[in-house]
Design a binder for these strands. Structure first.
Lengths: 335, 335
DNA sequence: AGCTATCCGC
DNA sequence: GCGGATAGCT
């Protein structure tokens, strides 16, 4: 028996709006500690992780762990039927073949219940490796969204470079080039307008703007976004979900053009590059082709056997993405 | 060396949005007095003239006259990346093979620079003949835009008729006819809502709505639009660009349909119609076919030899389109 | 690429 | 309730 009651229905609507463009179907994993989801996007290039801790709910009851397979676009449709101020209750029994969404208007005049069939979804529940980041940028989420949108009118990829002074977003396309620099700035009146650069080491990584623009669908959730970068690791783009948890997007960097790959190999010959032949389970060759050398989330293919810890939901701190990621991966390549 | 600094970046965005649908590529001519552009639309039926006087810029430096060939749609894309309150700087060196747009956010936290390759464009820089107009209508630009849009759902052309009492916009199509009359009206509280008719002589001219609807893309630039009409001359549709200059669209009238011509001949047999045979240099027969008898801008074909004065940018008054047009044409028909 | 229809925010 | 923006269609 699962029963969660959330006072701010609008939050859940925004969460689903952030997810539904990236992921079609996914399992919501409910345990005593919270409500979470992890899924790769439909082309298996990006990964999204949602966490809503039980403490964030007005009422939270989860007798045993349940994995609710939902079509996110259908779930989003149902949640759209809730008013932004409605109290939302989610119910499922242990059979877990359907889920009920109940919406109560603030004055209790309207009570709606929506029932949705659940689906069996092959669990792609993946542990996410811990990592230290060379640089963490915190900036207004709307500004980041605007930059990604603007740059994608010029080019397909963005180079994100962090120095102590600021973060630079660059692109290049047929019509010209663009560079946008945002300076470290904590002096603004409102903390939500600050841009904060925490940097151990300068870092410069390239990403597909297409995915960045999907991630920024989460912008309505939070005033600020955190972008955590390390060479050869997926970037983590994180939005807080008010007092409850977060939504995190992971995207592997592209490696630079051929010449630069060669240069890298020369300076760091010990790097083990991924073989060009790819398993049939990989759906999206163009991106995988130019993936960096180390294992990271986008290397995890759905068919891999994963040891899935039952207590994967962490309840710990929110400040640094890397400390949150407690789940362990045990990847066995099927090839 | 060219360097212009404009405080209100939003203005330039609007200017480009007004131009880009009508003209693909054009030369921006920069001289000490200002920044201007003249171009025919891609089907050589309409003409657009932009003037931004140097006094309107926060900083204006132009060491020698430069003609910057730009793809307007690409330029518009880049300018869209500027915030409406950003300070925009445009730079080009004398080699003029590329141009840089720099955007600074009001608080200086974000600095972006966009570089765009320039193109070599055959100069179609055309002098525009002076003219006295029989009627000048000044009315709210949004109202004019609405009328053109509405009428184009009924018919393809609009007849604009001016009498002392007001201006009438009429169309006729398969589904019926429409007439919209706007009366002279200076009694409204707000001057931007006034409709002012200055008329020497009644005039009634027919235009293709397709072009009128392109012109009204400039509506966001100004609350009011000025429509200047004379028999057998192109209409001038003018929008002011706040404190800086203007954008003017020129469109030759169509002559009426065959039956109406016949009717006219009966009542006014002295009317001299243009011979049906046309010179080979005419590019766009459908419109030229039904052109009135006198020479006007849409008769100016790119191949004609045009005496192009170097000081084509006028710095004079804004109130009457005809007094601004100082450039001299010397048209030598190539036939 | 331009336009229309729908949805969302003000 | 209106205007703007976006997504999908032609």
């Amino acid at each position: 028996m699962l029963e969660l009651r959330l006072v701010q229905g609008g939050l859940l609507k925004k969460v689903l709006d952030s997810l539904k463009d990236l992921v079609n179907d996914a399992n919501f994993d409910c345990s005593a500690t919270g409500f979470s989801l992890q899924a790769m996007d439909s082309s298996h290039v990006a990964l999204v992780a949602l966490l809503l801790r039980s403490e964030g709910f007005e009422h939270y009851r989860c007798d045993r762990n349940l994995s609710l397979g939902m079509n996110l676009s259908n779930m989003a449709k149902m949640l759209k039927c809730a008013g932004n101020d409605d109290i939302v209750t989610i119910k499922a029994d242990d059979a877990a073949d359907s889920v009920t969404f109940m919406f109560e208007s603030p004055n209790q005049d309207k009570i709606a219940d929506f029932d949705m069939k659940l689906m069996d979804i092959d669990s792609e529940h993946l542990g996410i490796p811990e990592a230290e980041f060379q640089a963490i940028v915190r900036m207004p989420s709307a500004e980041f969204a605007r930059i990604c949108k603007d740059l994608s009118t010029i080019g397909d990829t963005v180079v994100i470079s962090v120095t102590k002074e600021g973060v630079k977003f660059s692109t290049r396309g047929d019509i010209g080039t663009a560079n946008i620099v945002c300076r470290h700035n904590t002096s603004v009146d409102k903390p939500e307008e600050a841009t904060i650069i925490e940097m151990e080491e300068t870092v410069s990584l390239t990403f597909a703007l297409r995915y960045m623009n999907s991630f920024t669908k989460a912008t309505p959730l939070a005033n600020q976004v955190t972008i955590s970068l390390s060479s050869d690791l997926p970037v983590v783009v994180e939005y807080k979900v008010a007092e409850m948890g977060h939504i995190r997007f992971y995207l592997a960097p592209k490696i630079e053009e051929e010449e630069e790959i060669e240069a890298q190999r020369e300076t760091r010959p010990q790097v083990e590059t991924k073989p060009k032949t790819k398993p049939k389970t990989e759906i999206e060759p163009p991106i995988d082709d130019i993936k960096p050398k180390v294992e990271h989330v986008s290397d995890i293919k759905p068919k891999l056997e994963i040891k899935k810890p039952k207590e994967e939901i962490e309840a710990s701190g929110e400040s640094k993405p890397q400390v949150d990621a407690k789940a362990e991966i045990e990847v066995m390549d099927v090839e």
